[in-house]
Design a protein around this nucleic acid. Structure first.
Length: 930
RNA sequence: GCGCCGGUGGCGGAAUUGGCAGACGCGCAGGGUUUAGGUCCCUGUGUCCAUUAGGAUGUGUGGGUUCAAGUCCCACCCGGCGCACCA
């Protein structure tokens, strides 16, 4: 039906946009337009592009959730797509694809609720998301797409696990090596056991235990984070600062359990040092540095009763100022040293009314155990109690009292400190509370009126250190400790080993079995994959903090036992029933993109070398949210370094350049009860907001289901089209910044495409409407200045300003009364094509090209056209602009000065006055000071 | 408390090395096209004063350096993020 109004039949509107978009999406898929050739293997081709420099662009892959995408999700995906398209047009073989991080809790929860197998649910979610991303026109090489749940994928995740299981960390050479080399070294005597025992005298069981204790993936009985609500244990990285689960915010309890661990601590120094060479934001680097938490210092041994207690300090130079010692309430030696009665002359305030140290200590320990981590953090009032014993300071033989207090943490250092109130604020506070001695060992400045002095200054009250600076005193004291055997240099880290097992169904099974001796054995790699069994029983279990975790795989009874021949005949083995955490699959997916069909190897060596080469090597651009700063990014770097050590990859780091995109936020509305109401139903009137005639209040937050403020891409396609959505998201602001979504502003981006279309195409007939005449000099100059600016912006991911420059150019084209000259029209289409690929393809085709615009050359500026013949220069008097003059470019300062002085306005201001100073900046401005 | 990032019109945001603040877009106002609304097109739009010409003022606050400061320096306020009794 032709409507009564007179909208031209070929106006660029949503329906035209949609038909163009669907046409090209189909064409691209049929033509394999975005297929990037590999140097060999199943994805090799005779394409010349293999000879171009490579570029590997990647997004943090999404979890395929059941609710689908909202417009906030694809911001980074569009950004990488624009960049990848730009680089394709400037002569790169670009690899860009998308995978799915598809193991995880939601699919399992869904299975519990519906009885549907997680695999079915996951696969349909992936299909749904693929469709949504395809509709956006993202230029992905879909042959390379993987899901972590694919058996052909997790087979190799298991293979990498075996690499870690079958490796140990050689501290001397600072790299991972095959575990067989360690065994050889022990048996031929080139390496001796830590406890000095002889390898030959060990039983075979003892040898296995010894070797197992060295593996990079190992079983350990250690306090872990047990979350009964989720039914699983969790890594430290998955616990919030409040001590709850990151997912779901459930309570978490610390309990010792035997679990799989990854020896990430062995890589602490390399993970820290190699940050230097990465092109990552300082914010993320700082977060990783904080998480690793390295501090250099010394371990000093204090005799206490008939025992020795080691403390860790970063300030060995202050040892002469140690006036008491504090142990963490959980310190294992407490029970062995606590006496049955208070020593003579113990001050009453140290006893706190308790009849003897043993009851006092017990009471304090109970008090601490009741405190949550949050209490312990928030309430920083010092508390503690005297342990009833004294320690001897090694350097001056002073007897100092030993306390326990919860301001000392068992999880850091040795769980014991020497307290130096003179140089430590916390110790000063504690010393005041218990009336303990305070000895300054660093002289504060004369103006100092504070308490503890933590700055630099000459050592005092410190015998052989007196007069030395803090740094010199540290090294001298460390030397003394070392030669006298009272201590040694020590480095500590906050980083703990990575808890790697989960009691979940929907994850990778471990390629591990247990023999009769109960020790873990790695499955032979030829027996991979270890496939997840199908489960029937999805019923939830009610667990509490005292329950033991129940791995769901334990319910698949046949599966748990297996007959294997591991070299000594067919025997029965028990399978590991835990599964790997979700981070396992995301640790290495970038490598599988490179060679997804390879069934001989996780990636072929030459293909890996081709795509991962570069300055320091790795993915050339990795874009994603800041929330993965320490989890995924740290784990992935760790695995990559292990693979590097074992010779499986060629680059030291996985991600050379990391870019954190911002989030799209949107207005959210709450009613009087504080409940969120559907944002799309809120009506604004005179600055007030109502929902069903009820007053609501507005705030801004991350777009999503919980704030009921989602806008879906589908709504945007119906109203504007995918190109408009892409353009709007790129135009909203810098890619790394959060920005509020405003549906009413989207029309501006549609107008730009509409005007470009109208400048090239007759809206009535749909025919090309351009001229073969040359562009005017002015237009051509503007064209080349635009080309220059857009290239610069694209290179630096500044898409918002690139779009502004293109808009300016198009506004000028709109103003010329004649048809648009072809050279301008073609350039405009090319400049726009990374941003709005569908309409660009359509126009490119109309312009007579038979090959895709995707591989056309991006315009390069003719620098000779960038110089202007004449330029406008502002003339200031006393720094304020009073007039402007136009002079030929390249005019001498003297000429500019003459013309400026002749300007009538300037002349009238300065006539009769003396010019005290003249500033003439070539081509920029003139300033007369009067 | 410590560290990092940020604060520019009604709104999103532009401004190489200090050199014309507010590019580009939204919104708004006026006009054109249209029976009307919408679409589309044109013009204007930091604030204040002035009918106009023009003038003053202006980048969180207060100081400073400079011929010239959104940009550099000092002190502070506000917002976001990270770390937080780490010895």
């Amino acid at each position: 039906m032709v409507s009564a109004n007179s909208v031209p039949s070929n106006r660029y509107d949503a329906s035209l946009a949609n038909s163009i978009e669907l046409k090209w999406q189909k064409r691209w898929e049929e033509d394999g337009t975005y297929h990037a050739p590999n140097p060999s293997g199943s994805l090799a081709s005779d394409s010349e592009r293999i000879n171009l420099p490579k570029l590997f662009v990647m997004d943090m892959f999404p979890y395929p959730s059941g609710t689908g995408l909202h417009v906030g999700h694809p911001l980074g995906f569009i950004g990488t797509d624009v960049y990848a398209r730009y680089k394709r047009m400037t002569g790169y073989n670009v690899l860009h694809t998308m995978g799915y991080d598809a193991f995880g809790l939601p699919a399992e929860e869904h299975a519990r609720q519906t009885g549907q197998h997680p695999r079915d649910n996951t696969n349909s979610n992936i299909e749904n998301m693929r469709g949504q991303l395809r509709r956006l026109g993202l230029g992905h090489d879909l042959r390379r797409s993987i899901a972590t749940t694919d058996i052909d994928y997790y087979r190799w995740t298991q293979w990498i696990f075996l690499q870690l299981f079958n490796a140990w960390y050689d501290d001397e050479n600072k790299c991972a090596r095959p575990i067989s080399e360690l065994e050889d070294a022990f048996s031929n005597g080139s390496r001796i056991l830590e406890n000095g025992a002889s390898w030959n005298t060990l039983t075979s069981q003892e040898r296995k235990d010894c070797i197992n204790s060295y593996r990079l993936a190992f079983l350990d009985e250690a306090p872990v984070n047990w979350c009964p609500a989720l039914g699983t244990v969790l890594a430290n990285e998955e616990i919030t600062p409040e001590g709850r689960s990151e997912r779901g915010n459930h309570p978490v309890y610390r309990r010792p359990m035997k679990q799989w661990m990854m020896r990430i601590t062995a890589y602490a120094d390399r993970l820290l040092d190699d940050l230097e060479n990465l092109d990552w934001s300082d914010a993320i680097k700082t977060m990783q540095r904080n998480w690793i938490g390295k501090s250099n210092g010394a371990e000093i041994v204090f005799p206490v009763a008939d025992k020795e207690i080691a403390v860790f300090t970063t300030r060995p130079d202050t040892l002469f100022g140690a006036t008491y010692m504090v142990l963490a309430p959980e310190h294992p030696l407490i029970e062995e040293i606590v006496p049955s009665s208070w020593p003579d002359a113990t001050p009453d305030e140290w006893k706190q009314g308790f009849p003897n140290p043993q009851t006092a200590i017990k009471a304090y320990q109970q008090l601490t155990a009741q405190k949550t981590d949050l209490d312990r953090q928030e309430n920083k009032e010092k508390t503690g109690i005297f342990l009833g014993v004294y320690a001897k300071v090694p350097v001056n033989d002073k007897q100092i009292p030993v306390f326990i207090s919860d301001y000392v943490l068992m999880g850091y250092g040795t769980g014991a400190i020497m307290a130096v109130p003179g140089q430590d604020e916390r110790d000063w506070e504690f010393a005041e509370l218990f009336n303990l001695d305070i000895v300054r060992t660093v002289e504060p400045p004369t103006s100092w009126d504070g308490k503890a002095f933590t700055g630099n200054g000459p050592a005092i009250n410190s015998d052989f250190l007196n007069g030395l600076s803090v740094d010199d005193a540290k090294s001298k004291m460390t030397e003394w400790l070392d030669t006298t055997g009272n201590g040694k240099i020590k480095t500590t880290y906050k980083l703990r080993d990575w808890l790697f097992s989960r009691q979940r169904y929907w994850g990778e099974p471990f390629p591990i079995v247990y023999g009769e001796d109960g020790l873990p054995i790695g499955v032979d790699e030829r027996q991979l994959p270890v496939e997840l069994p199908d489960l029937i029983d999805w019923a939830p279990r009610s667990l509490n903090e005292n329950s033991d975790p129940e791995p769901p795989l334990g319910r698949a009874s046949d599966w748990g036992t297996i007959e294997l021949d591991l070299g000594d005949g067919l025997q029965s083995y028990k399978r590991e029933l835990n599964t790997m955490p979700q981070w396992a699959g995301s640790c290495w997916y970038y490598l599988r993109y490179l060679d997804p069909d390879n069934n001989q190897n996780f990636v072929a060596k030459d293909i890996e070398e081709y795509w991962m080469s570069g300055d320091a090597g790795g993915v050339d651009l990795y874009v994603g949210g800041v929330e993965h700063a320490v989890l995924h990014l740290l784990y992935s770097r760790f695995w990559h370094k292990v693979l590097y050590d074992l010779g499986h990859v060629s680059s030291l780091e996985p991600f050379q350049r990391l870019y954190n995109q911002g989030y799209i936020q949107a207005a959210a509305y709450q009613d009087a009860r504080g409940m969120y109401v559907e944002a799309s139903e809120v009506i604004e009137k005179d600055g007030a907001f109502t929902h069903n005639d009820e007053q609501v209040t507005r705030s801004f937050g991350k777009m999503g289901k919980s704030l009921k403020n989602s806008v879906t891409p589908d709504e945007m396609y119906d109203e504007f089209g995918a190109d408009t959505l892409r353009l709007y998201e790129m135009f909203m602001g810098p890619l790394d910044q959060d920005r509020p979504w405003e549906t009413k502003s989207v029309v501006g981006s549609q107008r730009l495409i509409q005007r470009v279309w109208r400048n090239l195409v007759d809206e009535e007939s749909g025919n090309l409407n351009i001229s073969d005449l040359e562009a005017s000099k002015e237009l051509r100059q503007l064209l080349h200045r635009t080309i220059q600016a857009v290239n610069d912006d694209m290179e630096n991911l500044r898409f918002n300003t690139a779009i502004a420059r293109i808009t300016e150019l198009n506004n000028e084209i709109t103003k010329i009364p004649e048809d648009t000259p072809r050279e301008v029209a073609e350039t405009l289409v090319l400049l726009l094509s990374p941003l709005v690929p569908h309409i660009a393809e359509e126009l490119w085709e109309k312009l007579g090209y038979e090959t895709s615009v995707v591989y056309a050359s991006f315009p390069q500026a003719d620098t000779s056209l960038l110089l202007e013949e004449s330029i406008e220069i502002p003339i200031q008097i006393n720094g304020k602009v009073k007039s402007k003059i136009t002079v030929p470019s390249g005019s001498t300062a003297e000429t500019v000065r003459e013309i400026a002085l002749q300007d009538p306005k300037i002349n009238s201001i300065i006539s009769g006055k003396t010019i005290r100073k003249e500033i003439i900046i070539d081509g920029k401005l003139v300033n007369f000071v009067i």
